[in-house]
Design a protein around this nucleic acid. Structure first.
Length: 882
RNA sequence: GGGAGCAUAGCUCAGUUGGUUUAGAGCAUCUGCCUUACAAGCAGAGGGUCGGGGGUUCGACUCCCUCUGCUCCCACCA
């Protein structure tokens, strides 16, 4: 078969993916083999593939394919996440574009739209993963809102409620005025934001609600909330303000009288030392308010607009209101001054809206006990974080965790299974009929229509924290006492989890909690935390910057194998990835290299009568050993999750050792056939190499492996055993390396003397050069070799380690140039010798350093001496010749 | 404000209990080659003293201190 000179991935990738699917090679069922399990970090159901997914899923796939080839029963469970806030937002926007407002729909109508959207756009990302070559067990695809997974979520809620871990209460929560829901502390991103610090005059009341001419100054960043002020607070130690004790001040503009209170919370050295206390709109103020029994006046509505309780600027957005009220304050003579001020402001992770601290009734999960166990799981090493540095971060979070606000004021998600009785009492049950039964125990007269289910849904992470359990067995979540089904018993705990550090707490920590709670075991053994994919300039990939390429375009252009390799090239664990298309080009080039090596080898004609040349015999022997050496290295890298190192080791083995040296050493002369022994060894090496490359570049390796020999239907490289290392002869590897260095030395001479590679040269060797490797030198350098003898003063000289090599060069050399070169060489060696001797003459070094280290220095000294001796000899000979 | 981490060739990174290396790789660069697998290639070359300073040690890129710069995480000083 004639193969084209350039590899075209488009011709192979879809074909082999279809073949893998048809044969169900990705599908796993429990059997007697050791399982290897990974659950996918479920992407948003409406998401599309971005570079972060490519990195993450390539790593996942490499691990899964490697494990599969190691003979394990590999299972990679795919699926998607319902992502309540993000998806609901998208649906709301889509409806808005059609002129439909969410407020005009019933819950049922809205959910119908949402499900339609999900059916239409959901799972696009999963089909995109197929293009990448992901070997997921698609028969096991799950969605966090599948009926059975939802049921598990509900049961989990009921379980924790009954355990006393879930409570409902009015708390200051992070309100997202765009998403119209509370979000958890973890979903708030603090960003330093430039704003103004407004210094406002509050006039002292005369006791009848009229201002006196005295005033105090308070500093605030939020003047639009003054109408909700409940008091002005000073530090009791602050002598500047002792005269204020017991007096009252008037809120500007609305002239409402509020008391002066004292609380040591107020810092005397910050602002003016006077704090306006606004319990409804600030967490600290709320706490002060509680201590001092202050009334709570909420003047901001769901959308972040001032409500009628504000009395003024009613209906205005909080930021518009701020601008306007500043002007009003200025006109009223209440604005002392304003200055620029930078302070951290909370933003919603999902909508980027400025978070409004707001009091509301929410459901919470107590975290203390769960976090304690989850911390222990990592501290004890039951779960390993890779890289290790995340342990510190993890510990810090777990030790300072606060209760998890799990309710969301949304419709898309699992509705909280709490049912209210007409009198306000609440019952929690998995479904309506159970709830009714419970309610009837309280009041036998109640009927189903008397119960009102909580309107809120649960935080998305309240379903994804069950993922490693619920994808196998939805019954176990919420029922720790239940028997596991066969799948869960076999696949749980999973082995490795590959994900980004940004969801270490959102997701990873909580999965560990759920695992400990329901399975009494952690959900995975290793967590490999990838970096964030950034552009060349170090900027995060983002839609608005337009610096994120579409992975599918890249796959079209370069092929999935190239994209995979390109991403892996620069991905050491935990470090951010600076993405550059040139890496993917490098991946494509490697594909092409493999392709062409294959063309070369399979283009050879086997000549049964030909004897194996010496050079080939040595090369075969060497490569066999080299292969084992590199396999050992690769296995070591894999065991430490050093994927890019493993990749580079394989890359160099193939490109440098196999192509540049081995194939050149065994390549038959033009028009000649190759002997059978060499050919068979070469094919066998190629076979091993393809298997080693396969987890990284699955498509091209399958294509070539299938072409390499007659394959039976249903055979695939992905189910072959990964090559195993045998004991190897390091001496032989060194001998061959010396041959390569000798060849390079000759080539160097040719280059500097402008000698054609076709012109055979003579090499004279002085020293202990490994005999076995000589045939390789002869062939690849196009030389004859012999012992050094006669007058070599005009020969070109180079060294291979401690062996001297001469290429006689009568009349061709510039004596002065050579002398200068040798003298430079000599000076360098002399300096080196001095430094070694300085060390050796240091008694304390000789006395304290381990013997092996001293021996190395002595060897350096001896080698250096012998080099100096031979350089000097050549130098003298050269000088005598002029 | 608290905590963590990083700083090694032009770029991206290795350097695994301080000593088999007067520092390694890939890419990029330069030189010469369209040599009968591959110009998405081949052959060769140059390039850093390991952010600055101090210390410990017989010996430090590797440990300690400090300064500088950057990154990330956490955080209710209005």
């Amino acid at each position: 078969m004639e193969l084209p000179a350039k590899y075209d991935p488009a011709l192979t990738e879809d074909k082999w993916y279809a073949y893998w699917l048809e044969n169900k090679f990705f599908h796993s069922e429990p059997d007697e083999r050791e399982p290897y399990t990974i659950v996918i970090p479920p992407p948003n159901v409406t998401g599309i593939l971005h570079m972060g997914h490519v990195l993450n899923n390539t790593l996942n796939d490499v691990l899964v394919r490697k494990a599969r080839m190691d003979g394990k029963n590999a299972c990679w469970v795919p699926g998607t996440d319902h992502a309540s806030i993000a998806t609901e937002n998208k649906v709301v926007q889509k409806l808005a574009s059609e002129g439909i407002r969410k407020e005009d729909l019933t819950r049922e109508q809205f959910l119908q739209h949402a499900w339609e959207w999900k059916e239409k756009h959901g799972g696009i990302i999963l089909s995109q993963l197929r293009k990448l070559g992901a070997s997921c067990d698609w028969d096991r695809t799950k969605f966090t809102m599948d009926p059975d997974l939802s049921e598990a979520v509900i049961n989990t809620f009921v379980y924790f409620y009954n355990k006393g871990y879930i409570y409902r209460g009015v708390r200051m929560v992070n309100w997202d005025p765009v998403g119209l829901t509370a979000v958890s502390d973890e979903e708030v991103i603090h960003k330093d934001t430039v704003s103004k610090f407004y210094h406002l005059r509050y006039f002292i009341s005369d006791g009848n609600g009229n201002p006196t001419d005295k005033y105090i100054i308070i500093a605030t960043t939020r003047p639009e909330t003054i109408m909700a002020d409940a008091a002005i607070c000073i530090n009791p130690e602050d002598e500047r303000y002792h005269w204020l004790k017991g007096r009252k001040v008037l809120i500007p503009l609305i002239n409402k009288e509020i008391p002066i209170i004292e609380d040591s919370y107020v810092a005397m050295d910050f602002g003016t030392g006077c704090l306006k206390v606004t319990p409804a709109h600030d967490v600290n103020d709320y706490e002060i308010g509680m201590r001092h029994n202050l009334p709570v006046l909420d003047i901001i509505d769901d959308h972040g607009r001032l409500n009628e309780k504000a009395q003024i600027l009613v209906g205005e957005d909080r930021f518009d209101a701020r601008k306007k009220i500043v002007k009003m304050l200025e006109e009223a003579g209440n604005l002392e001054k304003m200055e620029d001020y930078t302070s951290p402001i909370g933003y919603s992770e999902r909508t980027n809206a400025v978070i409004e601290p707001r009091l509301s009734m929410q459901w919470f999960l107590k975290m203390e006990a769960l976090a304690k166990d989850a911390l222990e799981s990592v501290e004890s090493g039951k779960v390993k974080l890779i890289p290790d540095k995340y342990r510190n971060t993890y510990r810090h979070w777990m030790e300072n965790v606060r209760d998890w606000c799990i309710s969301r004021q949304l419709w898309w998600g699992q509705r909280i299974p709490a049912y209210y009785l007409p009198d306000g009492q609440v019952v929690v049950a998995s479904n309506e009929s159970e709830a009714l039964a419970m309610a009837q125990k309280i009041d036998a007269a109640l009927t189903a229509s008397d119960l009102r289910q909580d309107e809120d849904v649960l935080d998305t992470w309240f379903s994804s924290w069950l993922w490693p359990i619920s994808v196998f067995d939805t019954n176990k979540a919420g029922h720790p006492e239940a028997e596991s089904n066969a799948d869960l018993a076999y696949y749980y705990p999973t082995n490795d989890l590959v994900t980004g550090p940004d969801i270490l707490f959102f997701w990873v920590a909580r999965m560990i909690m759920a695992g400990n709670e329901f399975m009494n075991d952690v959900p995975f053994r290793n967590v490999y935390l990838t970096g964030i994919v950034r552009d060349k300039l170090g900027r995060k990939m983002s839609k608005t910057l337009g610096n994120s390429p579409d992975p599918l375009d890249l796959i079209d252009k370069y092929g999935a194998d190239a994209v995979r390799l390109g991403m892996l090239l620069c991905s050491s664990a935990g470090n951010d990835i600076l993405y550059d298309e040139s890496q993917i080009e490098q991946g494509r080039n490697f594909n092409n290299k493999v392709w062409n090596a294959f063309r070369l080898v399979t283009g050879w004609n086997v000549d049964d009568s030909a004897a194996q040349p010496e050079a080939s015999a040595v090369a075969v022997e060497w490569f066999d050993n080299k292969l084992s050496q590199v396999i050992e290295t690769v296995e070591d890298h894999f065991s430490k999750f050093r994927i890019s190192d493993a990749l580079m080791a394989i890359y160099k083995l193939f490109w440098d050792d196999f192509c540049a040296w081995y194939l050149e050493a065994v390549k038959p002369a033009y028009g000649c056939g190759i002997d059978k022994a060499t050919y068979e060894s070469t094919i066998s090496f190629f076979d091993s190499l393809l298997k080693m490359i396969h987890p990284i570049m699955p498509f091209i390796t399958e294509e070539l492996w299938q072409n390499m020999a007659e394959r039976k239907p249903g055979e695939t490289i992905m189910n072959q055993r990964y090559p195993q290392a045998k004991p190897y002869d390091a001496g032989l590897i060194t001998a061959f390396e010396m041959a390569c260095e000798a060849v390079a030395g000759v080539r160097n001479v040719r280059q500097s003397k402008n000698l054609s590679p076709r012109e055979a040269l003579e090499v004279k060797i002085k020293g202990d050069f490994p005999e076995v490797a000589l045939p390789v030198v002869v062939k690849l350098a196009n030389v004859t070799v012999g012992k050094a003898d006669g007058d070599l003063s005009t020969a070109q000289r180079f060294m291979v380690r401690t062996v001297e090599m001469f290429i006689p060069m009568s009349g061709l050399i510039n004596v002065e140039e050579e002398i200068a070169k040798l003298e430079a060489d000599l000076a360098y060696q002399q300096k080196f010798l001095d430094s070694v001797r300085k060390k050796l003459s240091n008694e304390r070094f000789v006395a304290n350093a381990p013997e092996a280290v001293v021996a190395v220095e002595r060897k350096k000294e001896a080698d250096s001496l012998s080099k100096i001796e031979s350089i000097t000899a050549s130098l003298n000979a050269l000088k005598n010749s002029r």
